[in-house]
Computed example of a mutant assay.
Amino acid sequence: MKKPAASLSSTALRLLATREHSRLELRRKLAARADASDDVEAVLDRMAETGLQSDERFAESFVRSRASRFGAARIHRELGERGVDGETAASAMSEALQEDELMRARSVWQKKYGVLPQDHREWARQARFLQTRGFAVDIIRKLLKETLDESAQG
C-alpha cells in the first residue's frame, strides 16, 4: 500500500534528518512509497522552499566527506550521478577542495602503500589504484614519477 502525501513529508523529514540528500536521491526514495509522482514533486518542492532540502548543501557535504579519499574527477562524477548539476558541483568542489590535488593524492597513496614502487609492474598497480580513486593521470604520473625517481636514486 502506497503512502499519502502527509506521510511522504514525514518520510522525507526523517531521511533528511539522518543526512543531506540531493533532490534526485530524495525523489527516488519517496517514489517507491508514493501513489503518484505529483505527490512526490509537491513534497520535494515544499522541502526545497522551506530550506530543508538543498542540492547546494548536499554537494558541499558530499565533497567534504569524500575529499580525503577521492580525486576531483570521481567526486564530480558521483555528484552528477546523484542529480547535482555541473555548476553546483563545480562551486562546491572549488570551495571544499582548497587543498592541492597532488597533496590529496599523496595522502591517499601513503595510506594505501607507503612503499615506493620497485618496478614498473608495481608502479602500474599503484597508478591503477589512484586512477580508480578519481585522480587525474597527470597527477598520478607526477606523484609516482617522484617516487620512482627517488627510489632509483636511493
Rank of each mutant, 00 (worst) to 15 (best):
W123H: 10
S61F: 02
L30H: 01
E49S: 14
A17D: 15
Q118H: 06
D100C: 04
M1Y: 09
P4A: 11
D100V: 02
M103R: 12
R57V: 06
R104Q: 07
L24R: 09
R23M: 04
E49I: 08
D100A: 02
L13T: 14
L52V: 05
R64F: 00
S68Q: 14
P4L: 07
K3A: 15
L130D: 03
A105L: 04
E41I: 09
E60S: 14
H76F: 12
G80I: 02
R27Q: 10
A90E: 13
A105W: 04
S9P: 03
S22L: 03
A12L: 06
T132I: 10
V137P: 02
R57K: 11
A89N: 08
R14A: 15
E78W: 00
S91I: 00
A12R: 06
A72S: 14
H76T: 13
R19H: 09
A124E: 13
V63G: 12
A5H: 04
D149R: 10
S91Q: 10
D149V: 13
Q153E: 15
R28S: 13
A67K: 12
L79W: 00
A48W: 00
K29Y: 04
D55F: 00
A5Q: 10
R23A: 11
M47E: 06
D39Q: 12
E41M: 08
R27I: 03
A89L: 01
L52S: 11
A72Y: 05
L116Y: 05
A67H: 05
K3V: 15
K3E: 13
A12K: 06
E146F: 01
V84A: 07
S54W: 02
A59C: 03
A124S: 09
V115M: 07
S54V: 02
L116W: 01
V40M: 00
K111N: 07
K142E: 15
L24K: 09
R125Y: 01
A90R: 14
